[in-house]
């Protein structure tokens, strides 16, 4: 979420800019894509990544953020997939007249929606991590599930799982090592698949005011 601290001074923004209201878990990746694409028209603000554990709160939080910022932006794009809101986030975005990311969740769009669908059967018993989740494994997986305090709950959560699949956004040996360690801690087999940013650049490129300079 550190990347979110670099949100531009919203008061200074020009009308032509597009505001991205994103899940904090995507901040680093969005800023990287923005940089690669040279997409200076994109501004970013984030909601706490912890919300993904409480998806029922996401639509209302997104609504608040949209209402707070909409006066200053010509266009707002919500960088959330459904994230377990059961269609309610899409409904809210339609109501607010803003667009959002397609698909069920970030694992799917990082993998690429079609690729994820293709893998879904063979990876039924897989638990996914992204770069963000590998970095924040303790605060976003281990602790919220109570495994720090109650390691005996491991089977109740992961008894039906076989492997941890690290969907890697970047080539980073240290993250690879850390992800492997996460798998060990969960007593799961380990696999890594480099996905890059998946479908996310494609979604963001649609927001370009002029033809994109190149897709990251």
């Amino acid at each position: 979420m550190d990347a979110c601290d670099s949100i531009a001074d919203l008061g200074q923004l020009k009308q032509s800019k597009v505001l991205l209201i994103a899940c904090g878990a995507l901040a680093k990746e969005i800023l990287a894509i923005k940089e690669i694409g040279g997409w200076d028209h994109l501004e970013l603000t984030c909601l706490p990544a912890q919300l993904h554990l409480y998806p029922e709160k996401i639509p209302a939080e997104v609504e608040k953020a949209v209402k707070l910022h909409r006066g200053r932006f010509e266009r707002i794009f919500v960088v959330y997939a459904d994230c377990g809101t059961g269609g309610l986030l899409q409904q809210k975005c339609d109501e607010l007249g803003v667009e959002m990311v397609e698909g069920p969740h970030c694992y799917a769009f990082f993998d690429g929606l079609e690729e994820f669908e293709r893998n879904s059967e063979s990876e039924l018993r897989a638990f996914y991590l992204t770069d963000f989740l590998v970095r924040q494994f303790d605060s976003f997986v281990w602790q919220p599930l109570g495994l720090d305090r109650h390691p005996e709950l491991r089977d109740a959560y992961f008894g039906n799982y076989e492997k941890l699949v690290y969907l890697a956004q970047t080539e980073d040996k240290s993250l690879d090592n850390k992800a492997r360690l996460c798998a060990t801690r969960l007593s799961l087999d380990y696999a890594r698949r480099f996905t890059g940013y998946g479908d996310l650049p494609k979604f963001l490129s649609r927001l370009a005011p002029h033809p994109a300079r190149g897709s990251p």
């Binding site: 554990l53 409480y54 109570g146 305090r149 109650h150 709950l153």
Partner: peptide
Amino acid sequence: DGILFVPEVLLAAN
């Protein structure tokens, strides 16, 4: 009401 989260529920259920 968000006072307890999943691990506490699992322990209670157990």
